[in-house]
Design a protein around this nucleic acid. Structure first.
Length: 491
RNA sequence: GUCCCCUUCGUCUAGAGGCCUAGGACUCCGGGUUUUCAUCCCGGCAACAGGGGUUCGACUCCCCUAGGGGACGCCA
């Protein structure tokens, strides 16, 4: 049987470094075995999925240097590769489950479900659907459904016994069925949930090996049950460890840059990033640390993947990047600088900002240094201001960060509007409000227009600078975080 | 709270019962090369979570405890 793996991102946000991490292992594994890798877009969340996100993810993944044999952009024999275009397939399979009694229609209201969950949690139980609608007569249920009554389709999960399954890295794992919820398979909007879609697609797309994040282990019983109910053979599953913050929690954008865009813009070479990610959980048999993708494929062995959650270490990433940069020939080096930012496309947005402020061409570099490179390191004195206390600055930086995380369209005007509204809500004049932000973003009190600069830098770089500014102000304690959270909510 | 997973230097890891006086890399600290800096080279600090077993012998196997993480959504 030929090896087929897949990478299946959900287009609900910015391209994540974790996606590249999992994609890398899927890629190396498939290529190592002379198999194929495909890319599938998991856009079954109608509310959160967006085309913008999908485009950005594909582009970011391409930037890393990985590619795929089948996907929404390249086509292939198992398409479509976008789940939103496969709805009929899921409906058909849900019907099969309904017909065989493996699943049932559920008409319970959100209120009932919420109350149920509350009670169970109060009693210290794992929240789980109580099977209320299981008692419904299937014929009657489908009649109600046919009349258009809102409902979902749930998986019928046994209440007792144990589910056994195998994880390629950990061996056999047992989870009591009582821990597994009667998962919603089809939402009331007719779209499938992840669990139904992933099983149907992995089977139909002939995936032989699933390499995915560790957070899916607890969903294995649902998937195992679905494969069994469909009478399908289950692919081999390997759950990769999760990338961690320095405090060992799951890598999160609030604490670390998680966007691939951050790494690209900060001047990391994609091959260095990939090399570093490879080291997060895998090592060469001879412990060679600096290597190319081709060398990795050559030597890759899934058995050598370790299970402990690796902490993402920027110091080592920097060293790794330096290793790759120094190995470039002078010609390659010049080319890479060009590809990075010294090209017409990347520079074009800066022209309207700098041209009218320029008398000599040599003025240019000093004006854009913080846009092309890092801004200087900050100290708390940098935020001294005649009308703002350090506490005010913290509040502004914190609230700005929160507001930005909720901002969907990232451009000069939306940034302006959302900050104006925020300043007003906080009762601070726009001029004062912007002062700490200028420092945080540019490192200077006077610089190019703030919103243009932020638009140019992009989400990830801006988030990182705001966080580092907050740290320069002494950081935010747990207690302060709580207070700031409340203060933001009350705006 | 319940269930599951994980546990070697600060960090990433090697180690698949004797090769371990536990090796490498990053960071840090010394020293050398270099007009400065960086690179490069040399050296140093630093770990098998704890407790029971199994065995002639445990970092390696088993159990318990502790710690960390994840899951518990009509999100993926």
């Amino acid at each position: 049987m030929s090896v087929r793996t897949r990478v299946a991102p959900s287009p609900t946000g910015d391209p994540h470094v974790g996606t590249a991490y999992v994609a890398l292992f899927n890629y190396a594994f498939a290529r190592q075995h002379g198999g194929q890798i495909l890319l599938r877009i998991e856009d079954t969340d109608r509310v959160r999925s967006s085309d913008t996100s999908e485009t950005a993810i594909l582009e970011a993944l391409r930037w890393t240097g990985l590619d795929w044999d089948e996907g929404p952009d390249v086509g292939g024999p198992h398409g479509p590769y976008r789940q939103s275009e496969r709805i009929d397939l899921y409906r058909e399979h849900a019907d099969t489950l309904l017909r065989t009694g493996a699943a049932f229609r559920c008409f319970c209201t959100q209120e009932r479900l919420d109350a149920l969950r509350r009670d169970q949690q109060a009693r210290g139980e794992t929240p789980r659907y109580d099977g209320h609608c299981l008692a419904l007569d299937p014929a009657e249920a489908s009649e109600r459904a046919a009349r258009g009554e809102a409902h979902v389709v749930r998986l019928d999960v046994p209440g007792t016994g144990t589910c056994r399954f195998n994880d390629g890295l950990r061996g056999e794992i047992e989870i009591p069925w009582a821990q597994t919820d009667m998962q919603v398979l089809v939402k009331s909007d007719g779209f499938p949930t992840y669990h139904l879609a992933v099983v149907v697609d992995d089977h139909l797309m002939e995936i032989s090996h699933v390499l995915r994040g560790e957070e899916w282990i607890s969903s294995m019983p649902k998937h195992r049950l679905l494969y069994d109910r469909f009478g399908w053979e289950m692919p081999a599953h390997y759950h990769l460890p999760l990338l961690r913050n320095p405090d060992s929690s799951k890598l999160s954008k609030r604490r670390n840059p998680t966007g691939l865009d951050y790494y690209r813009r900060s001047g990391y070479l994609p091959e260095a990033l990939l090399n570093y990610l490879a080291l997060m959980g895998w090592s060469m048999p001879d412990e060679q640390e600096v290597f190319s993708l081709a060398e990795m494929i050559e030597a890759f062995d899934i058995e050598r993947v370790s299970t402990g959650g690796p902490v993402f270490d920027f110091a080592k990433l920097d060293w790794m990047n330096g290793q790759h940069i120094r190995r470039l020939s002078p010609d390659e080096f010049m080319d890479r600088v060009g590809v990075w930012a010294i090209n017409r496309t990347a520079l074009a947005p800066l022209v309207p900002l700098v041209q009218q402020r320029t008398e000599r061409l040599s003025d240019l570099v000093a004006q854009v240094d913080y846009l092309l490179g890092d801004r200087r390191p900050l100290a708390s004195e940098d935020f001294d201001h005649k009308r703002l206390e350090p506490g005010d600055c913290k509040r502004i930086l914190d609230h700005a960060t929160r507001r930005l995380d909720d901002l969907h369209d990232w451009n000069r005007d939306t940034l302006h509007d959302s900050f104006r509204a925020l300043a007003e809500a906080m009762g601070i004049g726009m001029r004062d409000f912007l002062a700490p932000l200028f420092i945080a973003i540019s490192g200077r009190a006077v610089s190019l227009p703030l919103f243009d600069a932020m638009a140019y830098l992009g989400r990830d770089l801006v988030r990182a600078r705001l966080r580092s500014a907050l740290e320069a102000l002494g950081g935010v304690s747990k207690k302060e975080t709580k207070r700031l959270e409340r203060s933001y909510r009350e705006l």
